[in-house]
């Protein structure tokens, strides 16, 4: 391995995200995929809506940043290529199973506790729900462990909103890369 100081401040040969819009596969950011209505590969539209609503409540801006499209696309690639936080949170593939089970339980608990879907709940009720989930206080929970659901979905939201070069800029944190990611999200 040869090396030169700062010699790697350039685009690396990183894989870009492929989304399908109107039957045509394109390289897009998750935000672009969301805005253009890219086809989902693993999640249903209902699951994607719920995921967007839940993570938006935790990390404002996550829905428009394409949280549902990001998770959906990443669940569709081979596990060793996935960039999901679940990969480093002791999750085992297929990763989509975690999301499907977690979302199903969030939906079931929302309806049983509040009589409505999570998306229909008020902001304060959503936050109360998440607060219970965070503390593993939702009784009769049948999904993956509550703190893991909380942490993984929160981290996914932080990833798509703040994990990018642009996200660092939003936080006022200098990026200082050696090898700059070619994907701009």
């Amino acid at each position: 391995m040869s090396m030169k100081r700062r010699a790697f401040v350039r685009g690396a040969a990183a894989t870009t995200f492929l989304f399908t819009v109107g039957g045509i596969e394109q390289s897009l950011t998750p935000a672009q995929a969301c805005a253009q209505g890219a086809a989902l590969k693993k999640l249903t539209p209902e699951q994607a809506d719920l995921l967007g609503a839940y993570v938006e409540a935790l990390v404002p801006g996550a829905r428009a940043a394409g949280i549902a499209q990001f998770v959906d696309q990443q669940c569709s690639v081979p596990p060793h290529e996935a960039l999901l936080g679940l990969r480093i949170a002791n999750g085992n593939p297929p990763f989509v199973d975690f999301y499907v089970k977690a979302l199903a339980e969030i939906d079931r608990q929302s309806n049983s506790r509040f009589g409505k879907s999570f998306e229909e709940m008020s902001g304060s009720d959503q936050r109360a729900f998440i607060d219970l989930l965070r503390q593993a206080k939702l009784e009769d929970w049948r999904g993956p462990q509550q703190p893991q659901v909380y942490n993984v979905l929160r981290d996914d939201g932080v990833d798509v909103v703040y994990g990018t070069v642009e996200g660092f800029a939003l936080l006022g944190v200098p990026y200082m890369p050696h090898v700059l990611p070619t994907a701009r999200w």
Binding site: S2, L83, R87, N92, P93, P177, P181
Partner: peptide, 22 residues
């Protein structure tokens, strides 16, 4: 390779454990 070590919290996950077995 050097260029695989991308300066990114997200892309950096590629070099971490790849759960292809259990």
């Amino acid at each position: 390779d050097n260029n695989d070590f991308i300066s990114s919290e997200i892309w950096g996950r590629r070099i971490k454990h790849a759960p292809r077995f259990e």
